[in-house]
Amino acid sequence: MRYYILRNNTEYGPYEVAVLKQYVDDGRILLHDQAKDSNTGVMNTVGYYLRRNNAKVKIKSKGSFVDQLKAIGSELILPVGLLKSKQWLSDKRLLLLALIGLGPSVIMLLPIHGFGVFYAVALYFSAIWGLFFYYFFKTQQVRLKITLSVFFLTQGFVFILWDVLGLPSLNPFYQLIDTVFILDLFGYIFGVGLTEELVKLLPLLLIYRFAKEPLQPKTLVFYGLMSGIAFGVFEGVQYQMSVNIQLDYTSSFFMNIARLTSLPFIHAIWTGIAGYFIGFAKLYPLYRHALYFLAISIPSVMHGLYDTFCSSYLGMLIALPITFIAVFLLTTYLRQAQDYQTKLIK
Rank of each mutant, 00 (worst) to 15 (best):
F253S: 03
I296P: 09
P214Y: 00
Y287N: 08
L206E: 15
F234L: 09
L294P: 13
D248V: 14
M226G: 11
S251P: 07
Y284R: 01
I229K: 05
G232K: 05
F265C: 04
F254D: 05
H289D: 15
K200E: 05
M226T: 11
Q216V: 02
T271C: 08
T271W: 12
D248G: 14
R288D: 01
A281R: 00
L206H: 15
F277D: 00
Y239E: 05
A268S: 09
L201F: 13
F231V: 03
Y287L: 03
Y292W: 10
Y276A: 02
A258D: 01
V199E: 07
M226A: 13
R209H: 13
A268P: 03
F231W: 07
P264L: 05
A281S: 02
L247M: 11
Y249V: 14
G272H: 07
A258I: 04
T250W: 13
I273Y: 07
L201M: 14
R259K: 12
F253D: 09
S262A: 14
R288Q: 08
D248C: 11
Q246W: 08
L205T: 13
F280T: 00
G279H: 00
R209F: 15
H267L: 08
M226S: 12
F234D: 10
L215D: 03
R259I: 04
K212C: 12
L215F: 08
A211R: 04
T271L: 11
M255F: 01
V237A: 10
S262W: 13
G275A: 11
L291M: 06
P214V: 00
S251M: 04
F265W: 06
R259A: 11
R259C: 06
P217H: 07
S242C: 04
Y284C: 04
H289C: 15
G224H: 09
P217R: 02
Y287H: 05
A230I: 08
S252K: 06
T271V: 12
S242I: 01
P203T: 14
F293Y: 12
F222T: 13
L283T: 00
T271N: 11
F277E: 00
P285Y: 05
L225C: 11
V199D: 14
M241H: 11
Q240T: 07
T219C: 05
I296Y: 05
L291K: 05
S252T: 08
Q240H: 11
H289T: 10
